[in-house]
Amino acid sequence: MIRTSEAIYKYLRPDKKYPHVWCPGCGIGIVTGALVRAIERTGLTKDEIALVSGIGCSGRISTYLDFNTLHTTHGRALAFATGLKLAKPSLTVIVVMGDGDATAIGGNHLIHSCRRNINITSLIINNNIYGMTGGQYSPTTPMNHIASTAQYGSIEKTFDICKIVEACGASFVARGTAYHAKMLDALIERAINKKGFSVVEALSQCPTQYGRRNKLGGPVEMLQWYKDNAIPYPAFKKLSPDEIGEKFPIGVMTDLDEPDYLERYNRIIKEAGSEGQ
């Protein structure tokens, strides 16, 4: 097992301010640890990796990690990453987004990146809330839950991010949680190694803005909830609707081998009659 503390000093930028910006008990730190361990497992060098992030709590990851880092505008991380990947295919491009970032303001970019099946790894850190702006409801805030802009409870249905990206054509779809941190780094590693568009949804507790408002307890209780309700995908499929309740599947849900965007684009280059450069 690669321990966070082993990998972390290799990948954190030593001249940044620590402890990091996230609140006590925030899951983003745990997920970042998993990301770093996953990268360590892939054996990629720091120069080979471009880390693109959006705006919000999760957007801060790019500041701390010592890769080629791009902190983009809200929701647009995937669009920046698309340009970067196509311009420099040798880079391993990892995109880190939050739930609001990826599925609200950036929803269009997410579904089209899936459709193109561009060889990018996206890590969507889903904490069910807009944390940095003070706890407004996001597309993944559960119905009837309280947010600073849903004081009477949210009346909107939630997105199932994994189902969306699966339907839109992503090659690799998986879900992990901050509690299942060890599993998460294996999922992220597989996603990075996957050719094509891969998505890992990492459920992550936001005790400050989401947990406290909804009386879900602190970070410990929220992690405990993940522990109690997460069911490995194969077992989850066998559950009856009555058994499901609050339970949700984790693990790999889709793993397809399909030509990625660049492979298909190379066909265009060939057809256009250029002599390879």
Partner: peptide
């Protein structure tokens, strides 16, 4: 087991 190590959001624990 290292559970505390990998679950620490602040990388403040090392188990070895």
């Amino acid at each position: 087991c290292g559970l505390c190590d990998i679950h620490c959001p602040d990388y403040a624990i090392t188990v070895a």
